[in-house]
Structures are given as structure tokens and as C-alpha cells.
Design a protein around this nucleic acid. Structure first.
Lengths: 139, 139
DNA sequence: CTCGACAGTCTCCAATATAGACCAGGTCTC
DNA sequence: GAGACCTGGTCTATATTGGAGACTGTCGAG
């Protein structure tokens, strides 16, 4: 509990008396969650888990549509948080390899089923979206 | 496979011959993933799972720091995708209750451990970040 | 009569994401 | 040895997004 949410939480309450609470606006764990709960970071973690250690350009090719900037930024973030190890081989052309650290592997293992689920249910979801749009777009 | 990634994927390859691939920039499942893999949607799903059906203002209070705008937007999205059911009771004051549909419950069950993990590991991650900042901030 | 709750919507402004150019080595080709 | 090309980035300009906070309209409380 990080002070403020000791006061008025109507719904979630303390839940299980933990030190951190992702639902608390001011709780440090919220910041952590916000950093990791983004598209690119999640895809990076899952990609590293599925395909093993990869270099920058491999990741970029593997994750369709990431810009170099976002890839750099997300990787830095993951490195900073101790989830990913960045190893530079000072050869030419330079080679930089990224791999999961134990902490990152833990999260990647939780995230992988989310990716699978998305692929498995994508058809159903797309259908629901079309239905919704048909019903609400043409009021 | 959605055409384009049949061509050059160096790292991930087809993986397991699935129809959808979240790593493909043009794959519809990527869009689905991008919509669901955001902070607020994930917190909403977990909140609904932990605390059951809730009305708009309960969700807002429960999820510290959501603006009404983002809450509305994320809920609409979840409703549109068939993960969440929105029920309006035309009373006064108006009452709108949100609950998980089976599809949403599935995802929420996968997401809950991610929230727990974040809370459990937040301390470690925060420490790693400080260490990183100390090492790299003061070069 | 004014205040607040409810479930939003709307507008404005700041922060963020993306595309694409640019960079510093070094190697390879000719 | 000039130019093209690879790597892993950074920089910049523009598009998109996110948050603060005012507005809506009906009701019950004080």
C-alpha cells in the first residue's frame, strides 16, 4: 500500500495486503506495469523467448513494423529494468545481441500465452468487431 | 499467414503454421493485439476479473489514474471486440454495468498473473532501474 | 436554489509514436 | 582509393494520442 489507496478504493480494496498494487495511481508498481505493458516490449520479450537471443536487426525483421527508434527505446527499457541483457561484440560490422535474463524469462513465459491467445481468437474478435460496427455504425 | 510474412522472416519463421501471426505487421491479429495490449484495457480486464461486474464509476475509482476519456475508449474497444458486456439500466441516475464475456474472461485469466508478477517483482525491477541509472546516468 | 452523482462527451494542449534522413566506423568492390 | 554497403543506432518533422477539465441533462439531497 502506497498511502493514498489506503483511503477510498471502492472496488478492489487491498486485495491481499501486498506491498505493491498495480491499481494504485501512485504505486511504483504501476509505473513498472505501464513500462512493460506496451506492444513493443511485450513482442520483444515473446520473440526472444520463442527464437532465443537475437541481434538488433534480427529483432527488427522478426517484429514486423517496429521502427528502429521504438525498438531501441523498448530494448533500453527492458535492459534498464533487468529483464534483458545487451551484449556488444566490438567487431566490424558491430554486433549487439539481446537475450532474456531470468526476470525477463519469467515475464516472457507469462506473456507467450497471451500472444497465442490473440492468434487463436483473432478470428472471433474480428468478427465481433465487424458485427459491432455494423450495428453501431449504421444506427 | 497474411501474404507478406510468407516472404522474408529471418527469426520467427512461421512458428507453427498458424493462420494468424502477431509478429506480422500486416496480420489482422497484430491489430487485435495492439488494441488489447494497452495499459488501461489490461487493467480493466483484470479489475473485472478480480472484483466482478462493475459500473463505470466503480471502475474509474478502482483503477487509479484513468481519465474518463480513456476509460470510455478502452471499454468501448473491449465491448466492440466482444470481451466485455455493457448493460445500461435506464434509471436515474443512469447505471451502466460492465462485465466480462467468456472471451474476455479467457484473456483476463491470462493477464491476471502478469499483474501479480509485476507486483511481486516490482521491488527487484525498481532496484535494477536505479542501478542502471547510477551506472549510465553518471558516466 | 445550489450541490453533487451519474455516465458520458467535447475541446484544447502537451506528450508520444512513426517515418525517414543522417551518422560513424569498417569492409568489399572495382 | 572512391564509392557502395553493412551495422546499430540518433535526430528531426509530422501525425497520433493522452490527459485536464469544462459541458450535458436528469434526479435526489440539503
Amino acid at each position: 500500500m502506497t498511502t493514498e489507496e489506503a483511503a477510498g478504493r471502492g472496488a478492489g480494496e487491498e486485495r491481499h495486503g501486498q506491498a505493491y498494487d498495480v491499481f494504485g495511481r501512485l504505486c511504483p508498481s504501476r509505473g513498472v506495469f505501464a513500462e512493460l505493458a506496451d506492444k513493443w516490449s511485450m513482442l520483444i520479450l515473446v520473440s526472444l523467448r520463442l527464437s532465443g537471443a537475437q541481434r538488433f536487426s534480427e529483432l527488427q525483421r522478426g517484429i514486423g513494423g517496429v521502427s528502429r527508434k521504438m525498438l531501441t527505446q523498448s530494448l533500453r527499457n527492458l535492459e534498464r529494468s533487468g529483464l534483458v541483457l545487451r551484449t556488444v561484440f566490438p567487431e566490424t560490422p558491430p554486433r549487439v545481441v539481446y537475450d532474456l535474463l531470468p526476470l525477463g524469462r519469467e515475464l516472457a513465459e507469462l506473456l507467450e500465452p497471451v500472444g497465442e491467445w490473440t492468434e487463436r481468437r483473432a478470428g472471433r474478435i474480428l468478427a465481433a468487431q465487424e458485427e459491432f460496427d455494423a450495428a453501431h455504425g449504421a444506427d
